[in-house]
Every structure is written in C-alpha cells, then in structure tokens.
Design a protein around this nucleic acid. Structure first.
Lengths: 188, 188
DNA sequence: TCCTTGTGTGGTTGACCACTCACATAGAAG
DNA sequence: CTTCTATGTGAGTGGTCAACCACACAAGGA
C-alpha cells in the first residue's frame, strides 16, 4: 500500500507527545494490564513496533502517561488558584474543586488516576510516579489554598469519592444511595 | 472426614468457598487483568483446570470474589453497629470506621475493592457487582447510623481516601503530605 | 550523485493466556 | 465385585501478548 503523497515525518519528540496524549484514552478503559501496546499504537496512528522505539517498555510508557496526567491536573489547579487568588482557603478550595470537576468532565484523566492507583500496588515504578504526583498535588493545594490539614484532606477525600462514582457509573443510576454519594459533587 | 449431615451437600461447595477465600489474596496484587487463573489455582492448592470446573469463567470467578468481599465488609459494619447500637449517629459511624479499619488491616480486602472499581469501568458484570455492593453498604450505613446524607457521604469519602493511602503505600513514607492525607486515619 | 542519519513498518518469536477434554481415582450403593 | 457418580488432573488448543529485528524510505549535506 504505497502512499503517493509525500510522507510527512515528524520528530520523535512530537510523536512521543502524541502517543502520550492519545494513550490516555487507550489506557483509560482497561488500565495497565488490560491494555495492549497494539491498542496504544492504534490510538496514536502508528505501528506497534514504533511504540517501542519511542518508549523502551510498556511500563515506562504507562508511567509517562501517568505523570503526564498529574501535570495536567496540577496545571488546572494552578489556573484555578490564580483565578481565585487571595481569597479565603474555602474559596480557593471551592475554585479548585470546580476546576477539577471541569478537567475530568472527560473521564479519561480521572480513570488513568484510578488505574494508576491499582497498578501502583504491585508495580514499583508506577507507585513511585503516583506518590510523586500526589505529593506535589497535596503540597500545592496546601500552599495555594492556605487551608488546614483537615481541609486539604477533605479536598482529596472528595476527589477519591468522585473516582468511585465515575468508575461504577453511579451518575447513571437514579437511586437514594447514588444521590447520597454524589450529593454536592459537580459534574459537567 | 465423613459428613453426617445430608450427604447431598457436596465437597465441591466447600472447594468453591476455599477458592473464593484464597483468590482474594491472588487478585489483590494485580487485579482482574493482571492475575492469571493459574495463580488463583496455586493459591487454592488445586489444578488450574479445576478452577474452571468450579467457576465457569474468570469473569464470574472475579465477580464472585468481589461479592464475597462486600459481604465481609458488610458483616463487619453490622457487628460494629450492634456493638454501638443506639448511640448517636456520630458514635455509630465512629464505631463502623474503626471496624472497617480493623477489617482491612490485612490489606487484601481493600485492594480487591480498588481493583473491582478499576475493572468496573469496562466489565459490565463487575460494574453490576460493585454497584450492588456499594448500594447495600450505603443504605445499611445510612439506616444503622441514622446519620445525615452528608455524614454518610463523608464516611465513604474517607474510605476511598484510605484506599489511596494503602495503594501507594503512603503509610510507609514519612513526609508532610502523607501526614496530611492520613491524619486521623486509624490503621492496625 | 552518494552517504549518513532519523523516521517508520512488516513480520516474527517465544512465552503465556483462558479455556477444554480425555482420563484417572475414590467412595457409595447394589 | 461391579457400576455409577463426583472430584480432580495432565496435557493440551488456539490465540494473544510484549518485545525484537531486518529493512524501507525521507531528508539533508557534500
């Protein structure tokens, strides 16, 4: 299957970023063990072999994806903090919660965090990435909001509750128990 | 090892329970996609082929394990509620939280819940089991504690935070961010 | 023009997976 | 003893996976 149009080459660095971005969607459904490198390649529009030229192993690819997600989350929180800059801790945390809710209205970002958590249990490299990701997040939220330990803890606890709701699709079920769990949780 | 009880009660039923119990440990490390049926068989001390005589497929085995875990969690909450019966909602929830903390001092129970959540994203049968599990849990906690929606929600949010802490081994890291996340969270 | 370097793929490999089947063995009943 | 049934396994099957390798092609410089 010859392509008559001049082939457009991209630099490896650009390709790596494309793969990182598109792999989020691939890993979001079935996580680290349930997703094949062929699926990642298809999502990125390249051959499976080329995935291995860009990333040395599936494990390093996945950890890179996880880190990429944490960077995005942090960026969202930063811009929220900038928007609500100088307000009370409650106001800043409120703004950050709203920004997070918007960020993950596309669920893939959050599902990666869930799957990263699951893989962290037995994959040391993933665990390290998750630890660093949350370490930075927690410190940033604490610093930018000026909230107490209790408030910061509450902020993350609600985030985790969010993951639960989305992962089992509780927002598609209308019942007393889902209303209790999702009460006051925004989603766009 | 003769059984004088009605002999129609086969030993296959006992085996099934053994497998269910031991499979918790097998699935806890790498979840649904990362755990092989051979590992489950080894943990139960039977051949891999016999796993398939006891359970028709890996999916049904896993969902059975998940349901088994939810039953155990519920039983723990029930006995806690019985112990603190009639107290204020806060006292009952406190007792339940403590019972849960004890239950999962062996981490496997909790890790199954985490992996079940992850698998629920793309496996309808698992999602259904997880939904039912949490539906019953939420209704039970609400009813037995008499707490408000907000208190019940807070109870589960803290549970999810617990999962995060354990999955990335935050309790093994001594740093400000881990202390913030784990503040006031018991573990035995 | 040739040569070198970087981008990209088809085809393959060996290991491992979920699942199956023919068969073994033990105990109870006749 | 024979037969029947339930428990249990060894030895596969077809398929899929992560990872590898030989090779093709594109672009730029001399």
């Amino acid at each position: 299957m010859k392509n008559e149009r001049p082939r457009r080459l991209s630099t490896a660095e650009e390709r790596r970023e494309t793969v990182l971005r598109t792999a989020i969607g691939a890993f979001a459904a079935r996580g680290y063990w349930g997703t094949t490198t062929t699926e990642v390649a298809k999502a990125a529009g390249i051959s499976q072999a080329y995935v291995y030229r860009l990333f040395p192993s599936k494990e390093l690819l996945f950890t890179a994806v996880v880190e990429h997600c944490f960077v995005q989350v942090r960026a969202a929180l930063e811009s929220a903090a900038a928007g609500a800059g100088g307000g009370s801790p409650e106001a800043v945390l409120e703004g950050m919660g709203d920004a997070y809710a918007r960020l993950i209205s596309d669920n893939d970002l959050m599902l990666i965090q869930l799957h990263a958590q699951a893989a962290a249990v037995s994959e040391p490299a993933v665990r390290e990435a998750v630890r660093q990701g949350y370490a930075r997040l927690v410190e940033y939220v604490r610093g930018a909001s000026g909230g107490t330990d209790e408030q910061v803890q509450e902020f993350f606890a609600r985030g985790m509750l969010c993951h639960l709701i989305v992962s089992m699709g509780a927002d598609e079920v209308d019942a007393p128990w889902t209303r209790t769990l999702a009460a006051g949780i925004r989603h766009y």
